[in-house]
Simulated scan of single mutants.
Amino acid sequence: MKLSAPIFQLKRRAKLMARHNNIALHDALDQIARAEGFTQWSLLSSHIAARPLSATILARLDDGDLLLMAGRPGHGKTKLGLQLLLDAVRDDRRAVFFTLDFTEQQARRHIQSLIIDHDIEGDRVEIVTSDEISADYIMRYLSDAKRGTVAVIDYLQILDQQRSKPCVAEQVQALSAFAQTRGVAIGFISQIDRSFDSDSKRLPDIGDVRLPNLVDLGLFAKACFLHNGEAQFQNVV
Score class of each variant (00 low, 15 high):
residue 161 Q to W: 05
residue 76 G to A: 09
residue 54 S to Y: 13
residue 147 R to F: 00
residue 169 A to Y: 07
residue 175 L to M: 15
residue 191 Q to E: 09
residue 6 P to R: 08
residue 21 N to K: 15
residue 196 F to V: 04
residue 90 R to D: 05
residue 138 I to N: 02
residue 78 T to V: 05
residue 5 A to V: 00
residue 147 R to M: 05
residue 74 G to E: 07
residue 39 T to K: 10
residue 25 L to Y: 09
residue 229 G to E: 10
residue 1 M to Y: 11
residue 172 V to W: 03
residue 170 E to Y: 02
residue 131 D to Q: 14
residue 21 N to L: 12
residue 160 D to Y: 01
residue 107 A to E: 01
residue 124 R to Y: 11
residue 201 K to L: 11
residue 68 L to C: 06
residue 2 K to I: 08
residue 93 R to E: 09
residue 78 T to L: 09
residue 111 I to P: 05
residue 78 T to M: 10
residue 152 V to R: 00
residue 81 G to W: 06
residue 71 G to I: 06
residue 186 I to T: 01
residue 158 I to L: 07
residue 13 R to A: 15
residue 159 L to T: 03
residue 177 A to Y: 04
residue 80 L to F: 05
residue 210 R to F: 15
residue 62 D to Q: 14
residue 10 L to N: 06
residue 229 G to M: 06
residue 237 V to C: 11
residue 118 H to F: 07
residue 26 H to G: 02
residue 129 T to Q: 07
residue 186 I to H: 00
residue 95 A to H: 03
residue 153 I to F: 01
residue 175 L to P: 00
residue 99 T to C: 05
residue 221 A to T: 11
residue 11 K to E: 10
residue 191 Q to C: 00
residue 122 G to V: 01
residue 1 M to F: 13
residue 60 R to G: 10
residue 135 A to V: 09
residue 63 D to W: 07
residue 101 D to L: 04
residue 6 P to T: 10
residue 163 R to W: 01
residue 114 L to Y: 04
residue 227 H to G: 02
residue 199 D to W: 14
residue 178 F to G: 03
residue 103 T to S: 15
residue 227 H to T: 08
residue 34 R to F: 04
residue 9 Q to C: 13
residue 141 Y to M: 03
residue 42 S to K: 11
residue 214 L to R: 14
residue 158 I to V: 15
residue 111 I to M: 13
residue 25 L to M: 12
residue 31 Q to V: 13
residue 95 A to Q: 01
residue 181 T to I: 04
residue 33 A to P: 02
residue 152 V to I: 06
residue 138 I to C: 08
residue 96 V to H: 06
residue 33 A to C: 01
residue 44 L to I: 01
residue 49 A to G: 07
residue 176 S to H: 09
residue 60 R to T: 10
residue 90 R to H: 07
residue 71 G to L: 12
residue 112 Q to T: 13
residue 5 A to C: 11
residue 199 D to Q: 13
residue 163 R to D: 08
residue 211 L to M: 09
residue 213 N to R: 15
residue 124 R to T: 05
residue 206 I to P: 00
residue 129 T to Y: 08
residue 220 F to Y: 14
residue 80 L to A: 06
residue 203 L to R: 03
residue 123 D to H: 14
residue 64 G to P: 04
residue 211 L to V: 04
residue 13 R to D: 11
residue 193 D to G: 13
residue 207 G to Q: 12
residue 47 H to G: 00
residue 133 I to Q: 03
residue 92 D to N: 04
residue 51 R to N: 10
residue 39 T to Q: 12
residue 95 A to C: 07
residue 216 D to N: 15
residue 97 F to V: 01
residue 7 I to T: 11
residue 156 L to M: 14
residue 114 L to S: 06
residue 105 Q to L: 12
residue 19 R to K: 14
residue 123 D to S: 15
residue 2 K to Y: 10
residue 84 L to T: 07
residue 135 A to D: 14
residue 110 H to C: 03
residue 151 A to D: 03
residue 92 D to H: 02
residue 166 P to H: 01
residue 162 Q to M: 07
residue 79 K to M: 08
residue 14 A to F: 06
residue 24 A to D: 10
residue 204 P to F: 05
residue 27 D to P: 00
residue 234 Q to D: 11
residue 85 L to N: 03
residue 172 V to A: 01
residue 37 G to N: 09
residue 163 R to A: 14
residue 21 N to F: 06
residue 35 A to P: 00
residue 179 A to K: 02
residue 22 N to A: 13
residue 20 H to T: 15
residue 219 L to Y: 09
residue 205 D to S: 13
residue 141 Y to K: 09
residue 133 I to N: 08
residue 125 V to M: 08
residue 148 G to W: 03
